[in-house]
Amino acid sequence: MERIFKYVLMILISTVAAMQFFQVIMRYIFEIPVMGLEEIVVYPTLWLYFLGSVNASREDTQIKANVLDVFLKSDRSRLLVRVIADMMSLIVSCWLTYWAWDYFKYANRVWKESPTLYIPTIYAEAAMFIGLVLMTGYTGFYLLKNIRASLRQAYRSNPDNIIADPQPEQGV
């Protein structure tokens, strides 16, 4: 999975940069700007945005404020806050995915096309729905993982259950 994401994202971001670079060279040096290039670049760009965000969810590196963590000292309360945060994320994520699905259906029905090359815009629009589905999936995965971790911690912090095993895992 790591490798797939790594190479897909590398190809997407490099393609986007290369296309823009190509346009400057064509316009400024050869004076023959390429018509329609700015239309094509939208497609890899939107996939880059959403797959990049999916990868952030997968790596658990989405931008977070974690203000409460500054005040919480014990790992246990931090883990509890994580579980609550993951639950809220999952609810909102499902709701957003529902609306992204609504939009996907709409886009599929109206079947818009790009202005001069007439490439169906759904090929870019699909990124939003697919991106949100995957983000929801990873959010759910971390929720389960953190619930398990906090149950394990509760079990361990009970004096009857002292076992010498490795430190409980934590959010990044």
Partner: peptide, 29 residues
């Protein structure tokens, strides 16, 4: 403050506007 990823924080605010404020997500996507 709970550390919900930022996109979902805005999603939560959007949900609030839609459930209580009469706003709609229709066309907003």
């Amino acid at each position: 403050s709970f550390g919900v990823p930022l996109p979902f924080c805005f999603g939560g605010a959007l949900m609030t506007m839609c459930f209580f404020g009469g706003a709609t997500m229709k066309g907003t996507m």
